[in-house]
């Protein structure tokens, strides 16, 4: 009985998908082994969103890792002579003063370049931590179910009820010195439940798949079932959510810094600059403008990357 629940179009898809073994001789080698990840990669490379976002992210990472490659000016020491000078000089792109100076005569461009690191570190570290903790919690809740799941689910529900930024503000308030790592901790503390929810849902879906039953029937242990069968199949939605969330964490850091609860001078960060820029918006708009643009581009790049990955991993297209 073919396609009990499939539509005709899906049936057509099915008929397209398999290699035709009715013609074995002409092309035995033509079709190589293609894993689903491999297929997704082929798909990604064709996606213009992916190309644009990955180029942007590549430069962001490069700037964060080697800011001195892009500017030799100091982000913290300025010359008051340059106080509030600010017109972009397109002829001198990349030079110290081409985006102007702030109130203390520091190069806006240099601060932009050096501020990237804070944003990127916060984004990547928070994402890594929430993915690992949230992923493990989600796997435990989804796979073992029962009372563990009930408790974990209620905990995530509670966190879900706390507004993200408000919660982060409360956490940060309790620290006197707010370094990058404190901000990372605050965001990760509030962020892991999102990944837990996604992972739990994915694990519950995959757990019921026949191939998991088949592995159990073979006598496979819990570790093998979890890491060989469930995790690789439950990871796709987590990757997508985490990528999109990464942009969100970067903007959260900026928001907190703007509110004066995140990073503060002398740490160089876009959020700090936006915060000072706002106070001088009538006299020197460029101090606010450029970090805002950088922030928007960065967040956009990660969201675009997440969307592209989602499209590539979407099983409905295969």
């Amino acid at each position: 009985m073919p396609d009990v629940t499939k539509t005709a179009a899906e049936a057509v898809e099915d008929a397209i998908a398999p290699p035709s073994a009715a013609e074995p001789a002409p092309q035995p080698k033509a079709e190589k082994a293609r894993s689903l990840w491999g297929d997704a990669w082929v798909d990604l490379r064709r996606n213009p969103y992916f190309l644009v976002s990955s180029v942007l992210i590549f430069f962001l990472l490069l700037i964060a890792a080697f800011p001195s490659l892009f500017t030799s000016a100091s982000p913290t020491v300025g010359d008051l002579v340059n106080h509030y000078l600010g017109k972009p000089e397109l002829g001198k792109i990349g030079s110290e003063g081409w985006l102007g100076y702030d109130g203390q005569g520091r190069s806006v461009y240099a601060r932009l370049i050096h501020g990237t690191r804070a944003s990127v570190i916060v984004g990547i570290c928070v994402t890594l931590i929430v993915t690992i903790i949230g992923g493990i919690m989600g796997m435990i809740a989804g796979y073992f179910g029962g009372i563990i799941d009930a408790v974990l689910s209620r905990v995530t529900d509670i966190f879900f009820g706390i507004p993200f930024l408000l919660g982060a503000m409360v956490v940060l308030q309790s620290f006197t010195e707010r370094t990058i790592w404190v901000v990372v901790f605050a965001l990760a503390f509030l962020g892991w439940t999102q990944i837990t929810r996604v992972m739990r849902g994915a694990v519950i879906t995959v757990k019921q798949a026949d191939y998991v039953q088949a592995a159990k029937a073979l006598g496979a242990g819990t570790g093998r079932i979890l890491f060989r069968h469930i995790l690789p199949n439950a990871m796709a939605p987590v990757i997508v959510v985490a990528t999109i969330a990464l942009g969100g964490y970067i903007s959260a850091e900026a928001t907190l810094s703007y509110l004066g609860l995140g990073l503060s001078s002398p740490i160089v960060s876009w959020g700090v600059d936006i915060s000072t820029g706002v106070t001088q918006i009538r006299t020197a708009q460029h101090i606010l403008l450029y970090p805002s643009i950088m922030l928007s581009i960065t967040v956009l790049a990660f969201i675009m990357l997440g969307e592209a990955v989602r499209n590539a991993l979407d099983p409905k297209l295969r």
Binding site: D210, Y211, Q213, A214, A217, L218, R228, H229
Partner: peptide, 19 residues
């Protein structure tokens, strides 16, 4: 389990797509 094995109904879900 070594001696009793199973063949499943749906060949689309009974094989791990990532292996």
């Amino acid at each position: 389990r070594r001696n009793i094995q199973m063949v499943f109904q749906d060949p689309y879900t009974s094989l791990n797509p990532r292996m």
